[in-house]
């Protein structure tokens, strides 16, 4: 009796997950399929479940690979900015989170409160003064201005701190006995232990940067400096006639990320989990 009930429940749960996954993936598949349809048609009639298979062609892609130079410039800009953001923000944020978790020092609670406080201050509220500052410092239209707000991420600091709290302090004492310096302890012993959290934060920060929109929209002026979201947004107007770049460009913006995710996801998820167990 009980076994039968369990089996029925299993079916229901699994079918629900199939349905939920379908909803989650439908828009992405829809975009990919639509990218092979004539772009003018698409904006007029919307993404449709019914369309003429004979209309499918590679023309949007041919256009983007042959005539959309600015699109590839945006792509390069996004790649450069995101790589730098990942590298810098992980380096700095892990240092801060580690110190907050494993050292006792004067002002520690104050600093941690500040971290929480900054997480609670929406960046958008400070963007007007910062925007003014960028104008004054003549940093408008530079990579530096785009990256600046992401370099020390309070969310990442918070996450690294939570993670480092689970690390064994005794290891640090043992290393000190062996004559390792405080910095050696971090870089050689503790940072490797924190690696699972690095993977998670790399993905988080990389995505934040890759998809960052409002701030780059403010500080970037020239087409050749645009990041992908800002560039694509200029095409998202009712009057535009570049829908071919918008649609095919959208696919090319998410495809590499999806591939990376599929490749790294085991590491990403097991990383988070292993971290919890090891500590």
């Amino acid at each position: 009796m009980k076994k039968k009930k369990n089996k029925a429940l299993k079916w229901i749960v699994n079918l629900s997950f199939v349905f939920i996954s379908f909803i989650a993936l439908f828009p992405v598949f829809g975009l990919i399929v639509s990218s092979f349809r004539p772009s003018s048609d698409l904006m007029r009639s919307g993404m449709s479940l019914t369309f003429d298979l004979g209309d499918l062609s590679l023309s949007n892609y041919i256009f983007i690979f042959t005539q959309a130079d600015s699109y590839w410039q945006w792509y390069a800009n996004s790649l450069i900015v995101s790589s730098l953001v990942i590298f810098l923000s992980l380096f700095f944020s892990s240092m801060v989170g580690y110190a907050l978790a494993l050292y006792d020092f004067k002002g520690k609670n104050f600093i941690f409160t500040l971290v929480l406080f900054i997480i609670m201050v929406p960046f958008e509220i400070l963007m007007l003064p910062l925007y003014k500052l960028m104008i004054t410092l003549q940093l408008i239209d530079t990579y530096f201005a785009v990256m600046l707000p992401l370099i020390v991420a309070p969310i990442a600091v918070f996450f690294f701190r939570q993670y480092a709290l689970g690390l064994p302090k005794e290891l640090m004492d043992a290393a000190r006995m062996d004559g390792t310096t405080e910095y050696g302890i971090f870089f050689k012993i503790m940072m490797p232990l924190m690696l699972p959290s690095f993977a998670a934060m790399a993905i988080l920060q990389g995505l934040n940067s890759w998809n960052n929109f409002l701030w780059p929209l403010l500080v970037l002026r020239s087409d050749s400096m645009f990041t992908l979201p800002v560039g694509l947004a200029t095409l998202l107007t009712p009057y535009g006639n570049n829908y071919d770049v918008l649609i095919a460009g959208s696919v090319m913006t998410i495809l590499p990320i999806v591939v990376l995710f599929i490749y790294f996801q085991r590491f990403f998820i097991s990383g988070l989990a292993v971290g919890g167990v090891k500590g």
Binding site: L31, L228, L232, I247
Partner: peptide, 8 residues
């Protein structure tokens, strides 16, 4: 990205 999601 939000722009791509919005387009879709």
């Amino acid at each position: 990205s939000i722009i791509v999601a919005g387009t879709i």
